[in-house]
Simulated assay, not measured.
Amino acid sequence: MRDRKRSLRIARAAPACLLLAGCEGVQSTLAPTGPQAQHVAQLFWVMVAGSGAIVLVVTLLTAIALFASPRHRAFLAGDTVVLAGGLIFPVVTLSALLVYGLVMLGAGPGKMAASPVRIEVAGERWWWRVVYRDDAGSAVESANELRIPLGRAVEIELSSDNVIHSFWAPKLAGKLDMIPGRKTALTLSAEKAGVSRGQCAEYCGGAHALMAFDVVAMPQNEYDEWRLREFQPAQDPTTQETREGKALFLSHGCGACHTIRGTPAAGRLGPDLTHVGGRISIGAAILATDEASIARWIKHNQDIKPGNLMPAFDIFSESELLALSRYLASLR
Score class of each variant (00 low, 15 high):
A114M: 08
L43G: 01
G106Y: 11
L150Q: 15
F44E: 02
R182F: 05
A13P: 02
F75D: 02
V99N: 00
E120G: 13
A288L: 15
A234L: 10
P219E: 12
Y223V: 07
V195M: 14
E24F: 12
P180I: 07
G174A: 12
I164V: 15
I298T: 08
L20H: 02
E141T: 05
M104R: 15
R4Y: 01
V140M: 01
A122H: 15
S166H: 02
L146N: 10
W297I: 05
H252Q: 13
S330F: 01
T93D: 01
A285Y: 11
I286D: 12
E225M: 06
I88Y: 04
G101N: 03
S7Y: 03
G22Q: 01
F249W: 09
K183N: 01
Q36R: 11
F313P: 06
M218N: 07
S159Q: 03
V154W: 02
R133G: 15
A209S: 10
A173R: 04
R296Y: 14
D135E: 15
L102Q: 15
S69I: 04
A284V: 05
L309S: 11
I10R: 06
D224H: 07
D303S: 11
Y100P: 06
R71E: 08
M112H: 06
E124Q: 10
I64M: 08
Q240L: 13
A329L: 05
V48H: 06
E241H: 15
C200P: 00
L309T: 07
G34R: 06
A63S: 14
V81L: 04
V81P: 01
G50E: 13
H275D: 04
L150W: 14
V26Y: 06
L43P: 01
P35R: 04
V121N: 10
L19R: 14
R261Q: 08
L172A: 09
W168P: 00
G85K: 11
E241Y: 14
S160R: 01
D134M: 07
D3C: 00
I88Q: 04
A122Y: 13
W226I: 02
P237S: 10
S160K: 07
I282F: 10
H252S: 15
L102I: 14
R9T: 00
S142E: 09
R227F: 13
S51W: 12
G307M: 00
W45Q: 00
A256T: 07
N144H: 12
G137I: 10
G50H: 06
V131A: 08
A153Y: 05
P311N: 09
